[in-house]
């Protein structure tokens, strides 16, 4: 376990200026469709996202933090992200995170990614590189990625439904064990990728409804969140 607790808090803080505040993690489309309408359905949505997109993101982040080739991981992330809208979003958030990371924890590796890939890498890959620059462990960043997967829909639901913020926060607290389990699973996958050099060991869990609604959401003329 890493001793750099404070760096992890900083990276996982929703106020870390990396652009996440404009994204709902699919919650806006789910609220519109009536699939999220209160704390119970928010919890179900978050649980589903955590075990699919969340697991994949956590494993990508852990692998990047462990020192796996970020460009191979980015290609693996593309293969696990069928919708163009979500690929665009992931790269856009990756660019924004990279900007914040380079200012916060300057490191040659981060600068090199900016120079060679101006269009960005998938956000979880950049998250892993950022954690590496901040001296964190693969397990640390897997936890941060898992938390990120559920905290953005929860925050968005508060804004979209005027949900009681205490209820939304209690939903996140209730998912703590699940997040820890996902982080552990993701870390193990990252270790396998590092040991074998093959990204085939990354999980490929997907949530087809999130993919479909994300693509539809991107075409809405009026929306509060970018994704």
């Amino acid at each position: 376990m890493s001793t750099r607790r404070t760096a992890l808090l900083l990276l996982a803080d929703g106020r870390f200026p990396a652009g996440a505040h404009a994204h709902s993690g699919g919650a806006e489309a789910a609220v519109r469709a009536g699939r999220i309408d209160g704390p119970a359905t928010l919890a179900a949505f978050c649980r589903g996202r955590l075990h699919t997109t969340g697991l994949v993101a956590a494993a990508l982040a852990a692998a990047a933090c462990a020192g796996c080739d970020p460009y191979a991981l980015d290609a693996a992330a593309d293969a696990r992200t069928p919708t163009p809208a979500l690929r665009d979003t992931a790269r856009k958030l990756g660019r924004q995170l990279l900007r914040a990371a380079r200012a916060t924890w300057p490191a040659p590796e981060l600068h090199a990614v900016a120079a060679t890939r101006p269009r960005g890498l998938h956000q979880p890959v950049v998250l892993g590189l950022t954690a590496r620059a901040a001296g964190l462990t693969p397990h640390d960043v897997a936890q941060a990625a898992a938390y990120d997967t559920v905290s953005s829909p929860a925050t968005a639901a508060v804004r979209l439904l005027s949900l009681d913020p205490f209820d939304a926060t209690a939903v996140l607290a209730g998912l703590a064990d699940a997040m820890d389990a996902v982080a552990a699973q993701a870390t193990a996958a990252a270790e396998a990728v590092l040991a074998t050099g093959s990204t085939d060991h990354l999980p490929a869990a997907s949530a087809p409804l999130l993919d479909i609604t994300a693509q539809q959401h991107a075409a809405w003329p009026v929306r509060l969140f970018a994704s």
């Binding site: 990396a18 404009a22 924004q96």
Partner: peptide, 20 residues
Amino acid sequence: VETGACPHTAIRDDISANLE
């Protein structure tokens, strides 16, 4: 630029999308 229901955040607290 899209601001996620929080226009002041995008110009003050988290300016990354605008800078981009």
